Simulated scan of single mutants.
Amino acid sequence: MKDNLYTIPLTDAFTAHDECPFCFIHRTLEQDAISFTLGASYMEDDIRAETDHLGFCKDHYKKLYDYGNRLGLAFILHTHYQKLEKDLDKLLSSTELPSPGFFERMKRSTPASSPTTDSLHKQLDSCYICERIDRNFTRYMETFFHLLQTNDEFKALFLNSKGMCLEHFTMLLEMAPSQLKGENKTFFLETSKKMMKENLKRIEDEIGWFIDKNDYRNASAPWKNSQDALPRGIQKLAGIYVQDEPFKKAH
């Protein structure tokens, strides 16, 4: 297989025999983005302008804190606060409580929106790291579809994989119509659905044996593939590695 910027990580992900190669890629992209954000780049004006504008989501604030470069994070937060204070001062200077419409008044639990609250939600939903990951992650998915159609060696890796997690399976199904045509589209749809069903059943059986193995009557029986069934089972459903330790700066 001829490697390039995107095929090498894809090949690594599919040869890792992970429950989902795209979880594997996403974790790598996230760790790279955290290292980049709290590396020398945070002192660059163009990068700081982006982090000042976008901020971070809750998950990535926690992961940036866990990473260990507290001084670097302090610099980033300090100028982000300065930018946020200026933006909020302008935004809140003419803010009034939103006026609910007729149907919102009828349903008292329905929140009323306004330009102010819409702007605040946009700020809360933005994240520099998420956006950096998403830009690259989409390219990996596009490369996946390209290789699936053009490279028999990669197709074999796909067929010998454990399929995808539910989240990334859904994303691939959404992208497939724009990436595949004819026989290739049919092949991917039928094969990926079959793989999903088979691997969900495999994990269900492994979790079932994990439960049975904790019965004293099975104390001497082998674990088979069930000892780590819980973290793998959660990954298959949610696309996360619950067993991972916090990602930290190398010393």
Rank of each mutant, 00 (worst) to 15 (best):
N4S: 15
A13C: 08
H26T: 02
Q31V: 04
A33V: 12
F36H: 08
T37L: 08
S41Y: 15
A49R: 13
D52L: 06
H53P: 02
G55V: 02
D59L: 12
K62R: 11
L64V: 11
G68Y: 06
A74K: 09
F75N: 13
L77C: 03
H80D: 01
Y81S: 11
Q82C: 05
E85V: 05
K90L: 05
S93C: 01
F103Q: 07
R105H: 08
K107C: 08
T110D: 00
A112Y: 01
T117S: 13
D118C: 11
D118Y: 09
Q123D: 03
L124I: 08
Y128H: 12
R135G: 10
N136Q: 14
F137A: 02
E142F: 07
L147R: 13
L148V: 05
A156C: 01
F158R: 09
L166E: 11
H168K: 00
H168Y: 02
E174G: 14
K181W: 00
G182S: 12
F188N: 00
L189I: 06
K193W: 13
M195L: 11
E198R: 08
E198C: 08
L200C: 07
G208M: 06
F210I: 00
D212V: 07
D212R: 15
K213L: 10
N214E: 09
K224F: 06
R232N: 14
G239R: 01
D244H: 15
D244I: 06
K248A: 08
